[in-house]
């Protein structure tokens, strides 16, 4: 295996295109190094993208927030503005592993690992995030839902890699939240998770709602009916009950070492309600 540390997008692409055998992109390494050690992957080339400036930046413009693919969880958490705009996304990334892991793990890596249980994903979907991809044919931008195809499988074509994640600048009175269920308090992979983004009008009525759940299907799922249940209404028990049911209905989990079908299905509904409540409350607290 050869390790490469290109310093430009162009150089990375040409390494990826010209690599003989299997090439893997390395960002924080907290998944890739484990997979290497456990011999789950045996690539011929490891292409470290951390030395490419675009992957290390956080930029905010009128339209969007761009978080470089190699920005670490710790760096994202320390950024005052992103957290104010999308607290749920930042919290989701902050839940990935220990403090030590946070010093290395990246949102880009979490996404590209394409685990059904990835913490950042439901939050990113709820926030309507996009993936910024660089490749031999230039840059393209696709939705998170389109990017994730199956466990361990993404829409990246040969020669492509993720440069950044883009989040919209949230509309007025919008907030998000992410919650996950783990049996311990830390260091576990999500057994079930839910991310939600809520927009309210001046009367506290919901005008826009997105809800996504993780670890309950091959890829994180957007609960499409959530919007119909929540929009134009206030948050009451009746709606929450409907929401829980609608969430459980989209779940197609498996039984594995981390949880059972019944448990995941039921708790997805619980977490969905809790995440919506939290996002709602945060949105209420925003004056703008």
């Amino acid at each position: 295996m050869d390790y490469h540390a290109p310093e430009s997008i162009h150089a990375a692409i040409s390494l990826l295109v010209n690599a003989e055998g299997d090439a893997r992109v390395l960002a924080g390494g907290t998944d890739v190094l484990v997979q290497l050690r456990e011999e789950m992957i045996e690539p011929n080339h490891l292409i470290d993208i951390k030395n490419i400036a675009e992957t290390r930046n956080i930029s905010i413009c009128a339209k969007e927030v761009r978080v470089g693919a190699a920005v670490t969880g710790a760096e994202l958490g320390e950024h005052p503005k992103v957290k104010a705009l999308w607290p749920g996304v930042v919290e989701a990334v902050g839940l990935i592993g220990s403090h030590q892991i946070q010093s290395r793990a990246t949102m880009g890596g979490n996404l590209c690992n394409a685990s059904p249980a990835a913490d950042s994903v439901p939050a990113l979907i709820a926030a309507d995030g996009k993936v910024v991809i660089a490749g031999p044919n230039g840059e393209r931008k696709i939705s998170i839902e389109d990017f994730l195809i199956a466990p361990g499988k993404t829409a990246l074509a040969i020669g492509e890699f993720v440069v950044a994640l883009a989040l919209p600048i949230p509309p007025t009175r919008t907030a998000d939240a992410y919650l996950r269920f783990i049996p311990r308090t830390e260091m576990d992979i999500a057994v079930v998770s839910a991310g939600s983004a809520i927009t309210l009008d001046e009367d506290g009525k919901c005008t826009h709602a997105r809800l996504a759940v993780g670890a309950v299907a091959p890829t994180a799922r957007l609960v499409k009916s959530a919007s119909g249940i929540l929009v134009d209404g206030l948050l009451d028990d009746d709606r929450l009950e409907q929401l829980a049911q609608a969430t459980s209905a989209v779940c197609e989990p498996i039984d594995d070492k981390r949880g059972t079908v019944a448990f995941r299905t039921q708790v997805a509904g619980v977490l969905a309600c809790r995440a919506v409540k939290l996002a709602w409350q945060r949105a209420m607290e925003r004056d703008i």
Binding site: A244, Q245, A246, S248, A249, A262, T265, Q266, V267, G269
Partner: peptide, 12 residues
């Protein structure tokens, strides 16, 4: 959770 006897909502 099973012991608490919460029922699993019927999946629509």
């Amino acid at each position: 959770l099973r012991a608490i006897g919460e029922t699993i909502p019927e999946a629509a």
